[in-house]
Amino acid sequence: MRRAWQSVLLHVALVAGAVVALLPIVWMIAASFMPTGEATTLPPKFIPSNPTLEHYRAVFTRLDMGRYLLNSTLVALLVTGTSLVINAMAGYAFAKLRFRGRDVTFRVLTAGLMLPVQVVMLPLFLFFKQLGLINTYWGVIIPSMASIFAIFLIRQYATAIPDDLLDAARIDGASEARIFRAVVLPVIIPILATLAIWTFLTTWNDFMWPLIVLSDERRYTLPVALANLLGEHVQDVELMMAGSVLTIMPVLAVFLFLQRYYIRGIMAGSVKG
């Protein structure tokens, strides 16, 4: 009997927590389908009286957010693809290849983890200005193409590869590139999967650096475009919510479909926020 009560109380608390966690997102979705003005009436509504797609139409036509969606997708995919290859190669080299200067190089690299990225932004902006990278997609992509943190994680994971496996391949005459492709990559796939999701989500959600680098509206990523729209459309609650839904849904979908790989990585203590 006492156990039953405990169970009820526990689940009441759990459900209350889930309501608080999800309510803002549910309200955002609901408001995006409401006719203009309905999201600012009392009492607050969670079901549109007369569901409409007008704000989504406006978002894609008048506000041209399809373009930003494309920009964000392009940037996030390019960063994820390139950084995965570059970091995997580096992480493996640090873990398994013997060469002079390895430990020093790695130590210098990990010392960089203490540097907050904002310190780099001012000179990097001036540097990119010289290189003509301001206001280009590459200006957003290049600084994320290699990550000390990702290299660190891959190194940790790749250390478990048995040396005998690699040496046997070498004696068989396999080139180092071939060993990497055929022996190493299949083994480190799990950490790469976690990192791929993590990189995609972080790049998609990234705000400060794209805000600094991109000045031409046509190149904005979704978060930058959304923050910019707020200035003019802060009163248009339903419209802003449609824009927010458009920004969040792709990452939410990626997460919900692939959460198994992502959550497993975090629980194993690998990926940080």
């Binding site: 927590g17 803002p24 955002m28 802003m240 927010s244 939410l252 959550i263």
Partner: peptide
């Protein structure tokens, strides 16, 4: 419940900050 509690973390900060402005 684990997924429900984790969802806010993966959302885009700028977008949810705008949602909270209205809340």
């Amino acid at each position: 419940f684990r997924t429900a509690y984790f969802v806010p973390f993966v959302t885009t900060l700028v977008a949810v900050a705008i949602v909270w402005r209205y809340l």
